[in-house]
Structures are given as structure tokens and as C-alpha cells.
Computed example of a mutant assay.
Amino acid sequence: MLYTASPYKAQQTIDLRRSTEMLENSEANLVTIAILSKGRCGLSKCITRYLVSMAVMDFLVIITAVILSRLRAIYFPTTVLSTIPTCKVLIVLSWISKDTSVWLTVAFTFDRFIAICCQKLKLIYCTEKIAAGVVAMVCALGCLKNVPFYFIYDPVYIIDNVPWFCTIKDSYYTSIAWIVYDCLHRVLNPCLPFLLILLLNVLTVRHILAVSAARKRLRAQTKGGNQSDPEMESRRKSIILLMAISGSFMLLRLTYVANFLFVQITSSGYATRTNSNDPKFILQESGYMLEILSSCTNSCIYGGTQTKFREQLQEVVKYPFYLIRKRLK
């Protein structure tokens, strides 16, 4: 991928619209991080640890992949950020943040699967300490996996001995080692996470349906059969949050996965920017757009599914007016 200002007006317009939308949502991610970090949303410390980490990584995706890459390429194409060393670092940071965000979602889904389906293991695994360790491990592996990206780019131009802009080396497409790395990279994000989240959700839902049916039969045999079930209510809220986050992940990455499978099956290669009306190009760019958009949806999910999160958000909105009112008095 070439991180330069696009010479094609249509593509530049697409990039501008997409990047502007992501920039507007970065503020929502900051507010989400601040609210979740307070720990007043009625969630366990384990869940809060995962959600805060996911929100931080989503924010870093917007900073590295949108603001410092696409918006910079459109508005400031010839700054120091376009020179080879900085350009390479930005690309690596973009992939690290995107990969880590994806695998944190997988880790969160697995944690909820253990909490709901494996009650004995829950006491050992679903703790804040384990969550912190998992987050640290995912971040470390995300860094190690994407460091090789630094070595696959060459400069587009060399002006006054200064290398400008990044373009992928020809050897990346011919070297067996790089071809294997590229395949593993695309399988590990998002194909494998997509399948893992789908599998974990299916197993979780099946377990919940079985347990719910058993509890209804048991409670129907008691005098309190018509009373509410606090445990099932708690599970219901947990499932709503889990399904909203993982479901959004799968839907927004479905286009990217479909394009990857299409390219692999047909061996047609990825589309270039020479023709913005090419259906292959539209599918490919739509996949990229929806992939980055997923970094902005979790804030809306928290607000839509968590009552206490909405209450905290209202407090944040009211706080400036409270300060103004206090000043006027």
C-alpha cells in the first residue's frame, strides 16, 4: 500500500470522507476511555480491563491509520512524516494497533465464554490480574508480528538524498518468505479472529439456551416459579454486551474477509487505484473502510447496552454546564 496523496480525485474524495468520519469519532473514544476507567459502570474489574484496553487500541487506530496516515497524506503530503523512516514507523504502528484491537476483541469474547460456560474455571481465569496479563501478552505479540512490515518498503522518490514516501518492494511479491508472511498476516487478521469469535458465540448461545431451559423447568416446579431470576438477568445483560461487540466486529469485517477469500480463490490479485469504478476496487476499499469504522462503534455499543454507562455519559455532558452555573453564582 502506498501512503502518499492519491493522484486520483475520486479516490482522494473517498479517503477524505472516510478519514473525516473517523476523526469525528475519536472524541467519542476518548470519552469512553475516561468513563470506563472510573469503574462506575457496574461492570466487573475484569470486563472493565478488557473494555478500556479495546477503547485505547481503537483510539490508536484512529490516530495512526487515519489522522497520521490518510488525513496527513491528503492535507500535508510533503512533511517529515512522508520520509521513509517515519513513513515506515507509521505503517508498523497502524498495523500494531489494528491487530491488537482485533485480538483484544477475541480475548474479551473468550473471557465471556469462560465466565458463562465454564463456572469452575471462571474463578481462576476471569480475574483482573489474568485480564491484565492477557492484554499485555496480546500487545506484545501484536508488536512482534508487525515489526517485519518495517522492512518491506522502499522510497518512491529520492530528492536531495532524502527518500520520500513508501511503496512495497518488488521482492515482497516474489520472495517465498514474504509470500508466506503475507498469507499468515492476512489469516491472523481478520480471518482467524472472525472464525474464533463466531465459534465462541455459537457455543456461548447454545450453553445459555440449554441452561435457561433447565432453570425454567426447575423454577416452574417451585412456588417461586413466577418470580424474576437475578442470575439469568445478569447473564442476559452480559450476553447483550458480548453479542453487540462481537457481532459488530464480524459484520464490519465481513466485507474484508469476503474480498480476501475472493482474491485467494480467483488468484486475481488485489485491485489498484487506477480505476475507482472497478467493482473489485470498490469491494476492496469498502472492506478497508468498514474495518477502520469498527474502531468507532464500540462507544455506541456501550451507550446502547449499558444503563450505568449512559448515566455516566450524561454526567460528563452536564459537567461543563455545572461549572458555568457555579461560576455565575
Rank of each mutant, 00 (worst) to 15 (best):
Q12W: 03
Y173F: 08
F194T: 10
F194P: 15
K280I: 08
T127F: 00
F194M: 15
W95T: 03
R273C: 09
I114V: 15
T307F: 00
F194Y: 13
L328W: 08
S246N: 10
Y288H: 04
N29I: 04
I114S: 08
K326Q: 13
S267N: 15
Y150S: 14
D58I: 00
L192D: 05
L218N: 13
V134C: 05
I197L: 02
Y3Q: 04
S175K: 07
S175V: 09
H207K: 08
A258I: 10
R40W: 01
K9D: 05
T127N: 00
T83L: 11
G225T: 10
A34M: 01
R327Q: 07
Y172V: 04
T100R: 08
A213F: 13
S19K: 01
C183L: 15
Y319M: 15
K318R: 04
Q306K: 08
T20N: 04
A244P: 05
T83S: 09
K216R: 09
C296N: 13
I168E: 03
R186A: 07
Q284S: 05
K88E: 10
V147K: 05
I245R: 01
R310L: 00
T167D: 04
E27V: 11
Y157H: 15
Y150R: 12
R112E: 13
S294H: 10
S267A: 12
V211P: 10
D15E: 07
Y173R: 02
A214I: 01
T297C: 14
M137V: 03
L252R: 02
S26T: 10
V205F: 14
M250G: 11
S295C: 12
K129T: 04
D170L: 09
L261I: 13
R112Q: 14
M232Y: 14
M232F: 14
L192F: 14
C296L: 11
T255G: 04
D160G: 02
S276F: 06
N201K: 05
F59M: 05
V52Y: 04
R112V: 09
F110A: 09
L188Y: 12
I116T: 15
R206E: 08
Y288S: 14
R18Q: 06
K145C: 02
C296Y: 06
R215Y: 04
E24W: 06
L198K: 01
D99R: 03
K223D: 12
I159H: 10
K145P: 01
L242Q: 07
Q264R: 11
R206T: 09
S97Q: 04
Q312W: 02
F108A: 01
L68Q: 13
K318M: 00
T4E: 08
D278P: 06
L241E: 06
L209P: 11
I265H: 07
E24V: 12
V31M: 01
Y75N: 14
R236W: 01
A131N: 02
N146S: 07
A65I: 03
V134L: 09
L242C: 03
L60S: 02
R219K: 01
V56C: 01
S82W: 06
L203K: 08
L30K: 10
V257K: 05
E285K: 09
